[in-house]
Amino acid sequence: MRKSKFWSVLVLTLISCICGFFLAWVFSLAKDKIEENQKKSIKRAVYNLCPDCERIEEKTIQGKIIYCLYDKKNNLIGYGFCSEGQGYQEKIEVFFVVDKDIKKLKGIEIIESKETPGLGARINEGFFKNQFKELDITSSIKCVKHKKSEKNQIQAITSATISSKAVVSIVNKGIKKLKTLLGK
């Protein structure tokens, strides 16, 4: 009996089922916590980039979540939006905040990236991200290798041009998408 093919199939099926149910149970315990963590990291990003913000309201347009930011007097002061695209190795997810006319960028935050440690991963560091603060976005942002000469330019990280360019194009794409979603 134990040598038969039927026995092999039975044991394999049984073990797979037990493991599957067990995993489903563990995941159902942790699911809320994981979602909460993602929301928390976005909220933290909003308060970092836009200290005046007092209240965040989530709006869903065509399946995309737009974060509307309000100040103390309940005036709309800007929008937050997540955008993602291909980086050097894996996709990069960027969260950015713009003012209410979508003319100025308030800043960006990298939510998820798996770039090369020490090189591409430096997109997470302040000196790169801070370049996006108060950036003019009436025309699309450009990524340059030399010192920036115009106000809508970002200087790329040395030896991580692809990652820097990826972040810039992801932000550009996100701004375009946000404009179409809001009909502006």
Partner: peptide, 9 residues
């Protein structure tokens, strides 16, 4: 997978 879920949570 349990470890992965634990770290993410």
């Amino acid at each position: 997978t349990i470890v992965d879920i634990f770290f993410r949570a």
